[in-house]
Design a protein around this nucleic acid. Structure first.
Length: 570
RNA sequence: GGCAGCGUAGCUCAGCGGUAGAGCAGGGGAAUCAUAAUCCCUUGGUCGGGGGUUCAAAUCCCUCCGCUGCUACCA
């Protein structure tokens, strides 16, 4: 049995995520996890909240909570939303967990021992008003280049020049506006990434064929531009503390930078899973397998995350000198846009996970977002497109197929699978067509090419409708019930087939369709047999219960209402 | 400024060296089991502009225009 380790980029803790976050990591990872399980693989699917860092502290401040309570609450909200979207992770952990603290410190010590960490003194902005250090972007002032008055300390948004906080004229805190800020020396740990350029390049080149162009291109860009050593600690209180035995106490009171500890939480969360389920050291079999090829590790993320997964985290792993599992496949996504623009929390533009579930069931979103995954380029969400896709694909082509044949069975065949008659030429042609289409569908799923995979899946549903039109059991029923029975039996078998093939993407709808015949198991069985065999698998005389309408259609009125509510094409 | 991606039918996208494709929308027809759902046929593009390489370019190169994103202390 193949062992597949799947991680989804960790959603940041500061509030409910929008559909873009869902479509770029959690959802595609879940579809893949469900698919691999259906194919009989042993799957470890891991996700967690990324909780450390300044934005979390500030969000907590704004919410009037202490940061730990805030994170605990937000973690529960995100966990619940993910589950309601059908995310079938083994564990949804927290980067603030004791397990991650221990592992993060472990990796830091390992890197320290390998001589890959170095203490350097850096200039940091300290604000007296907030009594804290400020990240560069939280310092604002007048841009020395263009005179823009609200330039950020990391970059001027007006002239796009990269800045240093010390460049700013009339620098002040972006939080309080206070000008009582000063530059202080502060010691930090730097990871000597620059030493790894050769190894990283070799590693990336080794994945020429199995990584998307997007991922390779972003990764190489970083290497080509000259990889700088990177500061991995921060002057904050909310984070994994730097252990005393690193840096001779020069780093007392500091924490690791979120980008150091967040990817380690993939491992931490797996340990959280083991600890919570009494699995002892079983997490190690995923992360430190005896032979690296015992586990296939696949990461899902949007493009903003690619550098950290192709450079930062691999350097941590490689530099540790220990045999931790390095990622095998990286599936990177572009952005899902909202009417061509950015989803924006601050501008309340776009759709967020909680609101999305208020207006449509999870599977409608799952289908739309997977079918329109931003694989090759940014992909534009519009309400019209969403409604059209749900109505046409899910309700009409799939849902109605299930409905028409099961109800016909109920009204004309006493709600039982008819056993009369033999399959003929039309059935054989359909079986051959489906054998070939299912093979293509599976191949695209193996490649994690969702647009192509779902195009094929939809074509499979269409083939069912084509068949039924041709077989026309409602016509034959009047003159030749045996001939009608053949068409109905095939139609019913197709329902079960479609349910099993579709389950990774639309688990709830698939389950409901499957239950026309029998209670559904946790994972619907993949049709691993030739169609000639599979499509006569339902037992003659078995009861057929037409499910309630599987997919409700979305009316134009709803589309208009949603556009008004969420902000539409302006 | 630098870097990356994109610009193909009304819309969303695929194709990435060999005489333009899909889904939706539009038009016509068939059928009536079904959520007026399905099935068949069909209109529609000088592949952003210009130049070049080639027997042959949407596909490779150059250049221009437009859109989007990233630019390492937001994650």
């Amino acid at each position: 049995m193949t062992r597949i380790l799947i991680t989804s980029a960790l959603p940041y803790i500061n509030g409910v995520k929008h559909l873009g976050n869902l479509s770029g990591s959690m959802l595609p990872a879940d579809v893949y996890a469900r698919y691999r399980r259906a194919r009989g693989d042993e799957v470890m699917f891991v996700c967690a909240t990324d909780e450390h860092g300044t934005p979390a502290e500030l969000a907590a401040l704004e919410a009037g909570q202490d940061v730990e309570a805030y994170c605990t609450e937000q973690h529960e909200i995100q966990k619940s939303l993910g589950e309601r979207f059908g995310c079938s992770w083994a564990v949804f952990g927290r980067s603030s967990s004791p397990q991650n603290r221990e592992l993060t410190q472990h990796f830091a010590r390992a890197l320290w021992k390998q001589g890959l960490l170095e203490v350097r003194t850096t200039k940091q902005v300290y604000s007296h008003a907030e009594k804290r250090f400020l990240p560069d972007r939280y310092v604002i002032g007048t841009c020395p280049h263009c005179g823009y008055e609200r330039a950020r300390g990391d970059q001027c948004e007006n002239c796009t020049r990269v800045l240093d906080p010390t460049d700013l004229i009339d620098a002040r805190s972006a939080l309080s506006g206070s000008r009582e800020i000063e530059i202080r020396d502060s010691a930090h740990l730097f990871l000597k990434q620059s030493q790894f350029v050769g190894r990283l390049r070799e590693w990336i080149d080794g994945h020429e064929k199995d990584w998307p162009a997007l991922v390779k291109s972003i990764a190489r860009k970083w290497l080509d531009e000259g990889l700088n050593d990177r500061g991995i600690t921060r002057d904050l209180s909310w984070g994994v503390p730097v252990p005393d035995d690193i840096g001779d106490g020069q780093l007392a009171g500091k924490v690791f930078y979120v980008w150091f500890d967040a990817p380690i939480e993939y491992i931490g969360a797996t340990k959280e899973w083991a600890d919570a389920n009494g699995r002892g050291d079983e997490w190690l079999k995923w992360w430190r397998p005896e032979n690296p090829s015992d586990v296939t590790y696949v990461e899902f993320m949007a493009k903003d995350n690619v550098p950290f997964h192709t450079v930062g985290f691999p350097v941590t792993i490689m530099g540790s000198g220990e045999n931790w599992k390095l990622v095998d496949r990286i599936k990177g996504f572009n952005w899902l846009t909202y009417y061509g623009g950015k989803f924006s929390t601050s501008q309340k533009r776009g759709v967020f996970m909680d609101k999305a579930l208020e207006i449509q069931p999870a599977d409608a979103w799952r289908w739309y977002l997977t079918f329109n995954a931003p694989e090759g380029a940014d992909s534009s969400f519009t309400w019209e497109h969403f409604a059209g896709t749900v109505n046409k694909d899910l309700a009409d082509v799939f849902g109605n197929f299930v409905n028409r044949i099961t109800r016909f069975t109920a009204s004309r065949f006493e709600g039982k699978v008819p056993g009369e008659g033999e399959y003929g030429e039309d059935e054989k042609a359909l079986e051959a067509d489906l054998d070939s289409r299912i093979a293509k569908y599976a191949a695209y799923m193996n490649d994690i090419e969702y647009r192509k995979a779902l195009t094929e899946l939809r074509a499979i549903w269409v083939a069912g409708n084509e068949y039924l039109t041709k077989a026309a059991p409602w016509t034959h029923f009047k003159t030749d019930t045996t001939k009608a029975a053949v068409g109905v039996r095939m139609g019913l078998n197709l329902v079960r087939l479609f349910a099993c093939l579709s389950a990774p993407v639309i688990p709830t709808i698939a389950k409901a369709a499957y239950e026309a015949f029998a209670p559904a198991p946790e994972t619907l069985p993949w049709p691993d047999r030739p169609m000639a065999d599979y499509l006569d698998g339902l037992e003659a005389g078995a009861a057929v219960t037409p499910p309630a309408v599987l997919v409700a259609k979305i009316t134009d009125e709803f589309v208009e209402a949603w556009k008004a509510r969420f902000g539409g094409a302006e």
